[in-house]
Design a protein around this nucleic acid. Structure first.
Length: 417
RNA sequence: GGAAAGGUGCAGGAGUGGUUUAACUGGCACGCCUGGAAAGCGUGUGUGCUCGCAAGGGUACCGAGGGUUCGAAUCCCUCCCUUUCCGCCA
């Protein structure tokens, strides 16, 4: 949710930003509702002040055994009016809030303006791409017996897979490697619930927009998490984080569940898009003045993982049109897939500034008696395993076996598959 | 799934229709006292919205939402959550 004051003082900025992000939302209507809302508040609160005053007079009169009937009659009318105005106000307020929730975050000035992913900007490339054609991960995985898509489909449905034998061990090793690296760089590890309630989904912005993309259990009105970002960020929902704990960085492993409704046709083969995958998520809660340097540091943390795994990778600065609803700026990290002869997105690092914090009500105070302020939140994948596994299988396959990169050796009882 | 108890401010905890502007205790902050400290004494102590240049004012908030009433933490209804016991179960 954006700051109402920005909306009031600089509606043009909000409009321009929404347009740059390809969002359609009626800013003028929101302003009009806001004005209407404030008028009603003034009116109804004046009446409430009157009622409180006279109510006290009635109490005093009764105590002194003085007749107060005329005042009671008078207040009966006032109370009726209050009730009427309150319900009007509730309606205006709910319309206003509904509209406010649809306004996307204002993108940072540094984000290139563009409609589609074609206008994204590659800001850094590390390593060399290859042109030698290699078998793709599906082929290799089948040969070596480390992934089973057919049985995944039988047991669950398309978009689910079994990791088998050394494949399962490799997956486990990746997760542990990511967690150990990140915790050694100052992230505090957590294991979270994998199902969350509605308020949490609203807090991080999955609801109401992404409802279609999530697995929902109607019986209990709970959602399977699409990313650990949800529980990790909501950990501090409605909290006042002690100033001494900022900037706070946490990480957590979770499986991620995504319906991927309507995403057929692009990057869907094998492991490139699945309904359930494993990921280690990085989340930061920072002081507002630090969030941009913390974003750079987060990207470096992810680069560290990719470097240790020996990948060719690049940084992709998303343009406004490709930047998500809640994000002010997003940098994707992509690895080179030798089998696909293409770049695969493996991480997305975003600064949400105060947008999520405002929704989820996550604040801090600089001193005991200073005003509460919203923290800034950031998150990024560090890392999601499926595409890492794809790139790894392809890169380290020598035609016969996969030679496990050294950084994973401590986590495995074998060095080849 | 069955039963019971409970949900009040920073924490503990009182409070069953009108001096509750939420008692009291503790915590914390500031001040007094002191050579310094402790003890003691005094003062203060939340959040949202809103009006105001500001100082400051108004209003709402006792798990959530409704209702009754001139007036609700308090009475009524619905829901949520926590704890304990029983049942079932990894």
């Amino acid at each position: 949710m954006i700051d109402i004051n920005i909306l009031r003082e600089n509606p043009e900025l909000v409009k321009q930003s929404a347009e740059n992000k390809n969002a359609k939302v009626d800013i003028d209507k929101a302003l009009e509702l806001d004005e209407n809302r404030r008028k009603l508040i003034v009116e109804v609160e004046n009446l409430k002040a009157l009622r409180n005053k006279v109510t006290q007079e009635i109490a005093d009169a009764k105590k002194n055994k003085v007749d107060a009937q005329s005042k009671i009659d008078e207040m009966r009318v006032v109370s009726g009016k209050i009730k009427e105005l309150d319900s009007q106000l509730a309606e205006v307020e709910s319309d206003f809030n509904g509209l406010l929730l649809q306004i996307p975050n204002i993108h940072d000035e540094s984000v290139p303006v563009g409609k589609t992913e074609n206008e994204n900007v590659i800001t850094k490339t590390v390593g060399e791409t290859t042109s030698e054609t290699k078998p793709d991960h599906i082929e290799i995985a089948k040969r070596l017996g480390i992934l089973d898509f057919e049985r995944g489909a039988k047991v669950s449905g398309s978009g689910f897979a079994f990791y088998t034998g050394k494949g399962a061990a490799l997956e486990r090793a990746l997760i542990n490697f990511f967690l150990d690296e990140n915790t050694s760089r100052g992230y505090y590890e957590m294991m979270t619930p994998f199902m969350v309630n509605e308020e949490s989904m609203r807090g991080t912005g999955q609801l109401p927009k992404m409802a279609e993309d999530m697995y929902h259990m109607q019986e209990d009105n709970m959602y399977m998490i699409p990313t650990a970002e949800v529980p990790l960020t909501n950990f501090h929902r409605d909290d006042m984080i002690p100033y001494s704990e900022l900037n706070k960085q946490i990480c957590g492993y979770s499986p991620c569940f995504r319906r991927e409704a309507g995403s057929y046709g692009k990057d869907v083969r094998g492991f490139l898009r699945v309904h359930q995958f494993n990921k280690v998520e990085l989340v930061k809660f920072t002081k507002p003045e630090d969030s941009w340097t913390e974003l750079d540091k987060m990207v470096e943390d992810v680069e560290n993982l990719l470097s240790k795994l020996g990948f060719t990778y690049r940084l992709n600065q998303l343009c406004t049109g490709d930047t998500s609803f809640a994000s002010a700026k997003t940098i994707d990290l992509e690895v080179w897939s030798e089998g696909e002869q293409n770049w695969l997105e493996v991480s997305s690092c975003s600064n949400f500034i105060d947008f999520q914090a405002r929704r989820a009500n996550i604040r801090f105070k600089r001193t005991a008696d200073s005003k509460p302020e919203f923290v800034h939140t950031l998150n990024g994948s560090g890392l999601a395993t499926p595409r890492i596994l794809v790139a790894l299988i392809e890169k380290y396959y020598d035609g016969e076996k996969i030679n496990i990169p050294e950084c994973l050796h401590p986590y495995l009882r074998f060095k080849t598959i």
